[in-house]
Structure formats: C-alpha cells, structure tokens
Computed example of a mutant assay.
Amino acid sequence: MGLWLCPWILLLLLAASSMAPSLAAAAASKPSSFSFKDNFDIMWAEDHFRTSPDGQVWYLYLDKKTGCGFQTRQRYRFGWFSMKLKLVGGDSAGVVTAYYMCSDLGAGKERDELDFEFLGNRTGQPYTIQTNVYKSGVGGREMRHMLWFDPTEDFHTYSILWNNHHIVFFVDRVPIRVYKNNGKPNNFFPNEKPMYMFSSIWNADDWATRGGLEKTNWKNAPFMSSYKDFNADGCQWKDPFPDCVKTTTQNWWDQYEAWGLDDNQHEDFSWVGRNLVIYDYCKDYERYPKMPEECRL
C-alpha cells in the first residue's frame, strides 16, 4: 500500500473527517486574531520558540541541547479542546511531539492526564499516534494508531471531547478512541481535577521509535513542529468551584447528544478500530492478565 493508505481509503476517511460532530459544529468559533502571550506561557527554552509574523502560527524546536513546550494559563474541567498541528518532516526517529491535558504543571505523582503523542520514524515510514489516560498518576492505558494521511505535509486538527460520560480523541473530527466513564467508585476516569492544555517537542529515542532501537539523528536538527488555531470551548476553572461545572447541561459539550457517538461517528470509529489500531492495552493479555475494568465497556 506504500507509505500511507491507498487512495480509495484516503477518500473515505477524508469524507468522514468532513463530518464534524453535530454539536461541536455549534461551538463558538475561534476569534480571527489570537494572542499567544495572553493565553499561553512557555514552559521551558523560550529561545526554541518562534511565531509567524502575524503571531498566528507557533513553532517549537528541538536540538541536541533541548526541546520546548508551552501551556495554557487557564485550567479547564470538561469541554472541547482542539489544535492544528503539523509534525516534523523527514527523518524524525526518536522525536516526540506531544499535545495533552494535565492537572499538574509539574507532572506530579497524583496528576490526571489525557495524551496525544506523535512518535516520529525514519524517512519513508509513517508516524504513529499514541494516546494515553492517567488517573491520579497511574497510566498504562496506551493505544497506538496509524494515520490515514501524512501529518508532516499540512496541518491537521487533533481534538479532545471531555465530559462526565466519556472522553473522545478525534483526528480531523474522526473519533479514534472512546474512553467511557464506568461510574464505579474505583473508576479510572479523569473527571474531578481541572486540567491545563500543553504542547511540547522533546527527544525520546530511548523508547519512541521501535522501542528505542532507532535513535535521533542529530545531523537533521533542529526539528520543528508547528501549531495554530487553538480552541478551548470548555468550563474555565475558577477557585473554589466554577458555576459552569454546576450547570454543565447548559453547555453543548455535555448535553445528551454529546454523551455518545452518533451513527456516522460510530461507523467511522468502527472502521478505525478495524484498520488503524496497532496496539490496544485492553488486548495486551501478557501485560494485563486480568482485563482492566474499563475495557469491559
């Protein structure tokens, strides 16, 4: 099939990606001008961060010295969160571009976290997208997917829908992973702690590409990932307890229609599950002889 999926499959998924979640389409549109400095802070290595002349595209750089990352100033609890990313092109083995939500600025031991991680590869090989869920510092809920396009050629949208019923990871509005709330006291579901949104680029050649067999080729540095069009349509957390959490049903992202996938999304999600999943912790019986409770949903 070559580097990416064959043309008819590509057309199928492109058509699917154009079908936005019906409620997400009703979300407030992003302002025409977005100020990075009013909404984000650089976490480290400010000299490895650049913007386009108009300030609307943001670039993070990785070299042998360091990578770079940024975070929202605001915390959220529940909502719709999206960003457009263009990943490192060429030989990106060992490089990880991350886009994630986390309840702790320092990745503390009790953090909740929702991860998109894009695992680079050698030239000519497709990217792998890894998603993960942490609850009170415990992770191990990884899934890995192939993508149906080359994420280094253009920007694509990566989104998280988070409400009290489920968490859905979207790629170009196609749901690739659904993580349900089982409603039990020992629930492994991040729904209590407000979270910041983060993006970063860093070297992970000890594990990211073929389990660490492929090392970063620093002759190709600096590596650059690109970002734009951040949209957070969610409940902004204000201590001690924001009003929007008390009345979540007034928000589109927690109305009844957002509690599950619609028919088109179910069809897309099933197709992704049959064709693009390359690792699912729920099916790793050597690692989990006893199936995690949430896998039974």
Rank of each mutant, 00 (worst) to 15 (best):
C6N: 14
P7G: 10
L11P: 04
L14H: 08
S18D: 13
M19I: 13
A26F: 07
P31Q: 02
S32G: 13
S33P: 06
N39T: 11
F40S: 04
F40W: 12
A45G: 07
S52Q: 04
D63A: 01
K64F: 02
C68S: 09
C68T: 04
T72V: 08
T72H: 04
R73P: 11
Y76S: 07
R77C: 13
G79N: 03
W80K: 03
F81V: 08
K86M: 13
S92D: 03
A93S: 11
G94H: 00
V95D: 00
V96P: 01
D104Y: 01
L105W: 06
D112G: 10
D112S: 09
L114E: 09
D115F: 05
D115M: 04
F116Q: 02
E117W: 04
E117M: 05
N121M: 10
P126A: 08
Y127S: 01
Y127P: 01
T128M: 07
I129P: 01
T131M: 02
T131R: 00
Y134M: 04
S136R: 12
S136F: 11
G137Q: 06
R141Y: 11
M146S: 14
D150F: 08
P151T: 10
T152R: 03
F155H: 07
Y158P: 03
S159W: 00
I160V: 15
H165D: 11
H166L: 14
I167N: 03
D172Y: 04
I176S: 01
Y179H: 09
Y179A: 04
N186R: 09
N186Y: 14
F189W: 06
E192K: 14
M195H: 02
F198Q: 05
F198D: 05
S199Q: 09
S200P: 01
N203A: 09
N203P: 02
N203V: 02
W207P: 06
G211I: 08
L213E: 12
K215E: 01
N217H: 04
W218H: 00
A221C: 07
A221V: 03
P222C: 08
D233P: 03
D233K: 02
Q236G: 08
W237C: 08
P240M: 09
V245C: 08
K246S: 15
Q250D: 12
N251G: 06
N251F: 11
W252L: 12
D254V: 01
E257W: 11
E257F: 12
W259S: 13
D262P: 06
E267S: 15
F269V: 05
G273Q: 09
N275E: 14
N275H: 15
V277I: 15
Y279F: 15
K283L: 14
Y288Q: 11
L297H: 15
